[in-house]
Amino acid sequence: MYSSCFEISVTQHDVLRDLALNLSNRESINERRRLVMPKREKGLPKEWLRNKHKPFEAQIVSIHTGTCV
């Protein structure tokens, strides 16, 4: 029931990431339940900003900023 770090091991495959993103991105930006930036960008994605006049329905929001050098 109680375990420690010794027993924890997680691996993840890129394909699962793509699957998760694909399943999340089927609806329009404002209607998505999971709103995720699929890649890091300098600021918020332009696509989000274009749609900011309407509220976003997302329950899970993930943002990722940083510029690739």
Partner: peptide, 21 residues
Amino acid sequence: LFLLVSNALRVSDKFYIVGEM
């Protein structure tokens, strides 16, 4: 899915330096 998405975003973050908001 939430775990996958959130974990996925941690991958390959070595090569950028600017991200200040």
